[in-house]
């Protein structure tokens, strides 16, 4: 059976008078990395939050391995536990150490034993290169380190996929590289990832597909090579040129 890992169908979302998402559909297969791009205010963050129901859509469905996430009887907490989410501004739990931030999911959500959860947390921190920061509090870490802890926090839940909402946008330029490195490594190891990011170096090196959104709809989607060299829509080309200027295109 060849079922996509994630299937998103005709998502609509309105805030007041503004229809932020106007029918968005796409599919993600296991192990794929998809990159969402588009002007700010286009609904990219809203779309990611609709996937794990942090924002319930007004209309449309989301399926994770065939299970309807959007169904009103779905066990949403359990489904969320298998969908990692990495926020633009990290949102690490301020009162917990890096280690506790990573182990709180396994202990409080999946009821793993404390020692086991700590061992797992340490392993994930080492995976993102922060084994030595296990006892530091978020406020004692740089932005890049905080974001890597938050990636470790997502990984500790054994997610089926991870959603990244502009994971490097809040970082000083010199800290972006360390986070992208971790993300590239994850993509190469076969993690399924949906990333809203304007880091085109990242997109070029690991994305299976770039999805260009504007005004709440998908304008165009395709493999990076095609999107960069031969976009079907004029807007796609314009936008890609603009962000390439803004963010540079060097591979980090």
């Amino acid at each position: 059976m060849n079922m996509p890992l994630l299937k998103v169908e005709d998502i609509h979302k309105r805030y007041g008078n503004e229809e932020v998402l106007r029918g968005v559909s796409f599919e993600v297969n296991r192990g794929e990395t998809k990159v969402f791009i588009g002007p700010s205010g286009t609904g990219k963050s809203t779309l990611l939050r609709c996937v794990n129901q942090l924002t319930p859509p007004d209309k449309g469905q989301v399926f994770l391995e065939g299970t309807e996430v959007t169904h009103h009887k779905s066990d949403i907490n359990r489904l969320r536990a298998s969908i990692g989410f990495v926020f633009q501004d990290f949102n690490l739990f301020a009162h917990l150490t890096a280690m506790q931030n990573v182990s709180i999911g396994p202990t409080k959500v999946t009821r793993m034993h404390k020692e086991q959860a700590q061992a797992r947390a340490l392993a994930e921190l080492e995976r993102v290169g922060l084994g030595d920061k296990a006892n530091a509090y978020p406020a004692q870490l740089s932005g890049g380190q905080q974001q890597r802890v938050s990636i470790a926090r997502a990984l500790a839940m054994d997610p089926k996929l991870i959603l990244f909402d502009e994971p490097t946008s809040a970082l000083d330029p010199e800290l972006i590289g360390e986070v992208l490195e971790v993300m590239i490594e994850l993509a190469r190891e076969g993690m399924t990832m949906l990333c809203v990011t304007h880091e085109m170096g990242f997109a070029r090196s690991v994305a299976n597909e770039i999805i260009f959104m504007e005004h709440g709809v998908i304008v165009e989607q395709g493999p990076p090579q095609q999107m960069f060299t031969n976009p079907k829509h004029q807007r796609t080309g314009e936008f890609l040129r603009k962000i390439s200027e803004l963010y540079g295109e060097t591979e980090r």
Partner: peptide, 12 residues
């Protein structure tokens, strides 16, 4: 964001 991150992890 603290609540959002907790819910995203699957906490009630």
């Amino acid at each position: 964001g603290q609540m959002m991150a907790a819910r995203a992890l699957g906490m009630s």
